[in-house]
Every structure is written in structure tokens, then in C-alpha cells.
Amino acid sequence: MLGRTAGGLFWMFRYLERSENTARLLDTGFRIALTGSENSSESEWESIVTTAGGREAFVQKWGDFDQANVTNFLLRDRDNSSSVLSCIEAARSNGRMVRTALSSEVWEAVNEAWMTLKEQLEKPVSVKNLAEVLTSIRQHSSLVRGALHGTMLRNDIYDFSRLGTFIERADNTARILDVKYYVLLPSAAHVGGSMDNMQWETILRSVSAFRSFRWLHEGDVKPKAIADFLILDRRMPRSLAYCLSQITGNLTYLSRGSEEELKSLALANQLDARLNGRDIDDVFEEGLHEFLKEAINQTANLASQIQDDFRFYG
């Protein structure tokens, strides 16, 4: 496969994953705005923008952290490379570039996602229509994912697509946790007031884990258990441990037949080992914030090592 094609697949799926994550963040923000107290909502919107990684750009262009501004910024601002619209356009554009590597189902799914969302996001989305638009975003990314699983050969094309997905997801989960790490610290745990409950719920919702967490923990929401769930639990498809195990798997497939071990695989194994069989108490001891910062940096290093190993660029 051409290195550029591998890169196109990787980025197509990174952007798709990101569009879904951005939409989920916005969804979470709305829930809080609707249920939370008056004065907390502004800072919640702010932390959502921070998690999406666009704080500076937001302040410069939009100013106040209110619902309308954040919605515009996250959904349809073309200057924000992580807005849903930017992501879908970038995903589709990469998809078009690697079209010969995609099944027609995958291509049509991403093309249709782009056609539909471009239209839905053309004008500002009103509060009344927000739920519908967010559902549409979620459904379209599910369609692409479903087409990928159902129609693509399990060869290196698939591996590069999955790598993009899980690198983005690992980064996203680590960011969400890092922006809120302080509410998970043991020192905060004893408080356990309604504020904390709301914060914990926010974290779980922004990784679509609210129900699965309750299901596993029978409604007993404890910050340590949340951290454990999102960092170390391999049953949870958005946890760091799960993402790393997938990345290691895909890189192992891709390295078959190559003479020396790929640097990216070595790095992924190292990161995987950091999460495998660990106790969450260890992590807290190391320092949650430090641990997450390290995870974010290492994920970025891994991404650029993958790019080098497989010659995405000349």
C-alpha cells in the first residue's frame, strides 16, 4: 500500500472519531446546562471547550463561554479544526483521496455523512434542533463504522483505519479525564456533594459510559472506580487500556513480515505494559494528572512514530 494511502486512512478515521467525540462533548455540556445550577454552567462550557482542545481559538473568536457560542464553535466553525463540520469535511476529503482502498459501502457512508451534515450545519443550530442534529452525527458515524466492520477486508487497510480510530480515542479519553482530574482525586471524594455527582456524571457521559458504568457498579458512583473504569478496564471500549490493546494488536498485524521490530510497535507495547495489570491506586500514587499528561504525550509520540514507520509522508 502507498504510504500516503495509509496516512489517508489513518486520518480519515481519526477525524471521524473526533467528530463523534466533539458531538458527545457538546451533548454532555447541554445536559449540564439543563440540569445544573445557573453559575456553574459557564465554567462547564469553558471546560468542554478546553477538553476539545480549542480554548485559545475560542476566546479570540467567540469571547463568552455561553451555549450559543460553544455550540457554533463545536459544531460548525470551519476555523476550528475539531468542529464536527471540519472533521467531517476532513474525513471525507481523506476518504476521497483513498477511495480506491475503501469498499463502496464505506465510501458511500462517509460521502453521505458529509452531504447530510454539511447541509444540517450550514446555519446555526437552534436549541430545538440540537438533539436531532446530534443524533444525526452519531448515526452517520455509526454507519461508517458499521460499513467498515461489515465490508472491509481484514488487511492492512483495516489496520490503518483502526489505528486512526484508537489513537484519537485514547487521546480523547485522556483529555476528558485530565480536564476534570481534580474531581476524581481522593481529597475530593469525601465531599461527594451534588456538585461532585454532577461532575462525575459529566465525565461518564462524555465517553458514553454512564450506563455501562452503572451496570457494572450497580449505581455506586465512586471517583476511584470511574478512574479505574476509564483508564484500566479493558471491557470498556473507550478506556485507555482498551485503546492501547487494540493499537498493539493492529500494529502487530502490520509488522508481520518485516525484518526488524517496528519502533511504533515497541512504543505501543511499552504503553500497553504501563496499563496492563496496573492497580488504580498505583496510578493515583504516581499522580493522576502526571499520569494523564504522560499518556497524552505518549499517544502523540506513538502517532508520529506510526507516521514515520509507515511512510505516510515523503
Binding site: L2, G257, R311, G314
Partner: peptide
């Protein structure tokens, strides 16, 4: 080496 070559993921 005097040939046109394509950059693939494996060289």
C-alpha cells in the same frame, strides 16, 4: 537508482 519508485508502507 534510475527507476521511478512508489513510496509504500514497506519501502
Amino acid at each position: 537508482d534510475g527507476r521511478v519508485q512508489m513510496r509504500t508502507t514497506r519501502g
